[in-house]
Each structure stands twice: as structure tokens, then as C-alpha cells.
């Protein structure tokens, strides 16, 4: 049997699709497995649930994670962005100028006391603090 160029081309396209199909089946199965557990962002957002009730419904608040914004790693930035995502419509500034400041610390780097010039309003646990500028 003679195989033509056209058949080779079509075979290549069909093989490409078959390989992708195998990947799609894997992703679908993984999705079914993931359905049983919360994704990392939903889990992360849960940390802010109680804090949201303690904050005003609108306005601008500050943010500190103990790391200076200039030296933020990708993970530090991700945590900051997710804080805004969780606390919207409040506008979260990445500095401590506003009167109310959210402290969002990694569980293993929670400071022993509030930063100078701030008083702790409440510790919500899991590295979440609400701070107020000291009078």
C-alpha cells in the first residue's frame, strides 16, 4: 500500500490531537480529584474572613508583612495581591501610612509585638493582625 504525503500530513495532525487528548483526559481526572478539597486561594481567603467584619466597608487601609515592598519576592507580592482580592472593595495600600493597617505575616514569621508607632487592635490568628496607628 502506497502512503501519500497527504496521508502523512493528516496522520501527524491526528497524532498531535491524540497526544493532547491524553493530556485533556488527565486534566479532567485531576479536576475530579481536586473537587473534594479547597484550592489554595479559597483556603487563603478564609484567613481574612473574620478580619473583613472588623474593617470599615469602604476606604483605604495599609498593609505590612514585615518585608519592605522594595524587596518583595514573588510570593510576598502574591500574598499582598490576595489580601486586596479578599478585602475588596477596600483599597489596600502596600505601606503603613493609613490609620488602619492589616498585618499579614507568614505563620513562621509573626513578630512578637506590633511595629513601632502602631498598636495591635486584634490578632485574628494564622498571622493576621489588625493594627492602628498609635495616637
Amino acid at each position: 500500500m502506497r502512503v501519500t504525503r497527504i496521508q502523512v500530513g493528516l496522520l501527524l495532525l491526528l497524532l498531535y490531537a491524540a497526544v493532547s487528548d491524553a493530556r485533556w483526559v488527565y486534566r479532567a481526572v485531576r479536576g475530579v480529584a481536586d473537587a473534594a478539597r479547597d484550592d489554595p486561594i479559597t483556603t487563603y481567603e478564609r484567613r481574612f474572613r473574620e478580619l473583613r467584619h472588623a474593617l470599615p466597608s469602604r476606604g483605604v487601609i495599609g498593609y505590612t508583612s514585615g518585608v519592605q515592598p522594595e524587596v518583595f519576592s514573588s510570593e510576598d507580592f502574591r500574598r499582598f495581591v490576595l489580601a486586596e482580592y479578599s478585602l475588596a472593595p477596600l483599597l489596600v495600600l502596600n505601606d503603613t501610612a493609613p490609620e488602619l493597617v492589616v498585618g499579614n505575616f507568614a505563620p513562621d514569621s509573626v513578630p512578637g509585638r506590633p511595629p513601632p508607632g502602631f498598636q495591635l487592635v486584634r490578632d485574628f490568628g494564622r498571622g493576621i493582625w489588625l493594627l492602628r496607628r498609635a495616637q
Binding site: V25, R27, G31, D34, A35
Partner: peptide, 9 residues
């Protein structure tokens, strides 16, 4: 199916 799986993940 993959799209739905990804959206769940």
C-alpha cells in the same frame, strides 16, 4: 472535560 477539570482545580 479538561476545561471543566481545570476550572475545578
Amino acid at each position: 472535560a479538561a476545561f471543566i477539570g481545570l476550572s475545578i482545580s
